[in-house]
């Protein structure tokens, strides 16, 4: 390879590095700031410390506030509920919308698309009255249900797209091979769209885990029903200077499960972006 070619080959990397840099710096600062007593700009000054992580032992906001573990558990509950419900319902709805022709199919599809594009903020007040009427205001279940509702249109469309890519011939082949409808669905179709379900599970979990607007709106203050993002907001106060060290430490804490989840689904996700169903189809 000539020198000129080498330089040209490096250009894409340079562009990628530059565009990723701001994000990288953000995470870098998050890490630094959580473990040092003081920072100046992006650099740590002073000693390394674990004091910012004291929130793990006791609430930094004093009595009356839930412990971090309680909040984490709440968040986990909402995120898991969302993941399971969204994946399950979307997979079933997506299959139906992709494979069956029934009256109202077209309008159902366009309706979900509209709902997906709908600015959810405008619905908050209406939902508030609904939740209160159902007695679900200020409950974890209420928050989780609303979140599921907002995630579902996206999930259904994603799943429908994956089912659309499963060839009819494959289903027919399985039927002729002697499988029942249920066996076809379970043994043939679901395994081939596993990457899609993993992707949706990841999206749903992350959006549940990071949710702020809906938990903030439909629970009271940072009470027993708070989620991590809402809890994090308590550090912002009008009277006391913000303890950025503690904020970043909680942020780091919140990041851990997402990172773990991502590591386990990474292969599947890459597979999906590399073209979904390879071969055979």
């Amino acid at each position: 390879m000539t020198l000129k070619k080498r330089i040209w080959a490096g250009v894409p990397y340079l562009i990628l590095v530059v565009s990723v840099l701001p994000m990288f710096i953000g995470y870098f600062w998050l890490l630094i700031s959580s473990f040092s007593t003081q920072t100046e700009g992006l650099l740590p000054v002073g000693n390394l410390t674990l004091e910012h992580f004291s929130f793990l032992r006791e609430s930094p906001f004093g009595r009356g506030y839930p412990s971090i573990w309680r909040v984490t558990f709440n968040t986990f509950l909402i995120a898991s509920f969302m993941t399971i419900t969204v994946v399950l319902v979307s997979a079933l709805a997506g299959y139906g919308l992709s494979r069956l022709s029934f009256p109202g199919r077209k309008s159902f599809l366009s309706l979900t698309l509209i709902l997906h594009a709908f600015p959810s903020v405008t619905l908050l007040i209406g939902i508030f009255f609904v939740l209160r009427a159902l007695g679900l205001y200020n409950t974890i279940l209420g928050v989780a249900l609303v979140m599921v509702g907002f995630e579902m249109p996206f999930g259904i469309w994603l799943m429908k797209g994956f089912f659309d890519n499963v060839s009819w011939d494959m289903e027919r082949a399985a039927l002729i091979d002697g499988a029942s409808r249920l066996q076809v669905w379970w043994q043939i179709i679901l395994p081939t769209i596993k990457p899609g379900m993993a992707a949706l599970a990841l999206f749903a979990f992350i959006s549940g885990w990071n949710a702020w607007l809906i938990p903030k709106t439909f629970t009271i203050g940072a009470g027993q029903q708070a989620t991590l993002s809402v809890y994090l907001q308590n550090f912002q106060s009008d009277t006391v200077a913000v303890d950025w060290g503690a904020v970043t430490a909680v942020g780091l804490f919140q990041l851990i499960p997402v990172a773990i989840f991502f590591i386990f689904t990474q292969d599947l996700l890459l597979n999906m972006y590399a073209g979904g169903s390879k071969g055979g189809a």
Partner: peptide, 18 residues
Amino acid sequence: PKGRNIGMVFQSYALYPH
């Protein structure tokens, strides 16, 4: 189909990719 004792080969092969 399962009760007909037939085998079929498709243009797309229709193999099970997994």
